[in-house]
């Protein structure tokens, strides 16, 4: 579904990604771990072109997407993204947050979008908040709305960029529950996170990224139970 070949990203002189090759297949839940500054968020942002790769190729459904010829907006509609800072639209109600893109991009009529919005809000347990504004919600609630908003576009892939890092500890669980539920439904997901327990439980594959390359890749049992790479062992000993 997503193929990445020899991905490089430089910010000025600073090399953040130094040649990543990866293949993400449909239904996979890939959890990306690694120390801060390792390039894991940049990797995720390159996938939906929020960052432009300096070198290398990214294919989505066998279509090369990091080329000027491609319609970026069409590609992004296939990929939902959830941000660390939620980034809900504060001037719109929760329902408007969810329906804005599907209606504006003519994927659905307004009535269809509202119905879909109600289904999604029910799925993230926030039905009663449809007419509230983001400022009236807690962090965990905001992030669940952000997930619903991304799902409203019927994406094939969901990207999560440290979705629980900005949350108070007691709210982390409710967001992870929604993500677990989503993983069970068969959604293809790429998740950058520091929640190792979650990674172990939900991931079909764990990637350990450091210094801009994939140091280790495998099932949670392999990576957490029997890490082969010295750096992975080192990192895990600090966070577990």
């Amino acid at each position: 579904m997503i193929k990445v070949k020899n991905l490089h990203k430089k910010f000025g002189d600073l090399t953040v990604l130094n040649g990543i090759d990866e293949h993400i297949t449909p239904g996979e839940v890939v959890v990306v771990i690694g120390p801060s500054g390792s390039g894991k968020s940049t990797f995720l942002r390159c996938l939906n072109l929020l960052e432009t790769a300096t070198d290398g190729e990214i294919y989505v459904d066998d279509e090369l997407i990091n080329t000027p010829k491609v319609n970026v907006n069409r590609i992004r509609q296939k990929m939902g993204m959830v941000f660390q800072q939620f980034n809900l639209f504060p001037h719109l109600t929760i329902m408007e947050n969810i329906t804005l893109a599907p209606v504006l991009l003519k994927k659905m009529t307004k009535a269809e979008a509202i119905q879909k919005g109600q289904e999604l809000l029910a799925r993230v347990n926030l039905s009663e908040k449809a007419n509230a504004y983001p400022a009236q919600l807690s962090g965990g609630q905001k992030q669940r709305v952000a997930i619903a908003r991304a799902l409203a576009m019927d994406p094939e892939i969901m990207l999560f960029d440290e979705p629980t890092s900005a949350l108070d500890p007691e709210m982390v669980g409710e967001v992870l529950d929604v993500m677990k539920d989503l993983a069970k439904s068969g959604m293809t997901m790429v998740i950058v996170t520091h929640e190792m327990g979650f990674a172990r439980e939900v991931a079909s594959r764990v990637l350990f990224i450091d210094q801009g390359i994939v140091m280790e890749s495998g099932t949670p049992e392999e990576v957490f139970g029997n890490p082969k790479n010295e750096r992975t062992r080192n990192f895990l000993s600090k966070v577990l």
């Binding site: 069409r74 509609q77 990929m79 993204m81 639209f89 804005l100 893109a101 991009l105 991304a150």
Partner: peptide
């Protein structure tokens, strides 16, 4: 982040 959120949904 507001712009990124909008663009990530596929808006122009």
């Amino acid at each position: 982040g507001q712009t990124e959120a909008g663009r990530s949904l596929g808006l122009s």
